[in-house]
Simulated assay, not measured.
Amino acid sequence: MATISFTKGQGTGNDFVIFSDPDGEVELSPEQIAAICDRHFGVGADGMLRAVRSRSIDAGAAALAEDPDAEWFMDYRNADGSIAEMCGNGIRVFSKYLIETGLADLEPGDTLPIGTRSGVRDVQRSTNGFSADMGRWRLDGGEPLVRAKELPVARPGLGINVGNPHVVVALASDEELDAADLSYIPVVDPEPADGVNVEFMVAADPLVSDGVGHIRMRVHERGSGETLSCGTGAVATALAARYWAGAGAPNQWRVDVPGGRVGVRMFAAEDGEHVSLSGPAELVFEGVLEV
């Protein structure tokens, strides 16, 4: 039986079990990860983050080819043990963990490159915690129909990919958003082959104030269920809101989630438009697991 020293962290209520495995020596099965993330019989978390050096994991080769300075790779697993490409809240918590444990340095104004399965993501300090450049995004478009428990009719969604897949659904009121029962998996038609994160959003009134858009959202994450926050989901929702708002819509957004508030900003880059996510990150407690 092996022991693992872990840290529990959270970003706007999206919580993670984090542990360091620099040389890639610890291989946990999906069943072990699911047991650790179980909120009744385990530590409890929306997912698990393993800090492994990019050179020590097969998926890290692409990260090092993209940026040789991406020493650390964020090996992210959902609460059910399945692999996910990216996690916007997780990368802030991951960065906080690397810094607090002395595995990495990040001075104000500097950038910390982190390897992920959707490419290298650059993290900087921000006024409210950390900001991560989530890279280029893609409009998958279409109008998949989404059904959710306690919403009386199917609603059209918008497909957006920000390193992982999302379908965003606009609702008419806060009452509709509050009524949705996201303990059940929303049904998306046509059903994506690899699953999808589903966000439900409501626009603030007014939508734009002082040049900043404001929306509220809830999310059902594939492999984790409803969470208090989803960073990539907040990014996808802000992108969808801007798309629906049309010409003149802002490039800065405040996104309220059940666990707090995050900021989203769209900006031009050499390889196309990028989008960044900013928000808090906190390390909650430490412990030891026997697995």
Rank of each mutant, 00 (worst) to 15 (best):
I114T: 08
L228N: 13
A2C: 01
H274Y: 07
R136H: 08
E290N: 07
G279S: 08
A193C: 01
L158N: 10
I160L: 07
L151Q: 05
T116Q: 02
R50A: 07
V212S: 01
A179N: 14
V188W: 00
R125A: 10
A70R: 11
Q32G: 05
R53S: 14
G81W: 12
A193N: 09
V26E: 07
W72A: 09
D205R: 15
F16C: 02
Y97M: 05
P206V: 10
G260E: 02
V284A: 08
S20G: 00
V93S: 07
R138G: 00
D67T: 11
V26L: 14
Q10S: 12
R136A: 03
V168T: 09
E273V: 15
C37A: 09
I18E: 03
N161D: 10
G225P: 06
L106Y: 15
A193D: 14
P250S: 03
D174E: 14
V198T: 07
D189Q: 11
E221H: 01
L277S: 06
R261Q: 09
M1W: 10
G287L: 04
S95N: 15
H214N: 04
P280A: 14
D21C: 05
H220N: 09
A236H: 09
I36T: 13
G195V: 08
K149D: 08
A84Y: 06
N14S: 11
D58M: 07
G90H: 05
G115E: 08
R222V: 04
E199T: 01
L228E: 05
S209D: 00
V255K: 10
T12F: 02
Q252H: 06
L171G: 06
P190E: 01
V235W: 03
N128I: 13
I18G: 01
R254Q: 03
V153Q: 15
D271R: 14
S56N: 14
G263A: 03
G42L: 01
T101S: 13
A268Q: 15
T127E: 14
A45C: 09
E27F: 06
Q252P: 00
D189W: 00
G9I: 04
P165E: 03
A154Y: 09
L239W: 08
G233C: 07
R222W: 13
E221L: 01
G211K: 00
D67R: 13
I160Q: 09
C37K: 04
E273D: 15
S229E: 07
R77M: 00
S5R: 12
S95T: 15
P186H: 02
D189R: 00
P152N: 07
R147I: 00
E286H: 11
A51C: 04
G13K: 12
A240F: 10
G115Q: 04
I18R: 08
Y184C: 00
A172P: 10
V257N: 11
R147H: 11
Y184A: 02
D15M: 02
A238C: 03
A269Y: 08
I160C: 06
H40G: 14
N197L: 02
L145C: 01
Y184V: 00
A2W: 05
D189A: 12
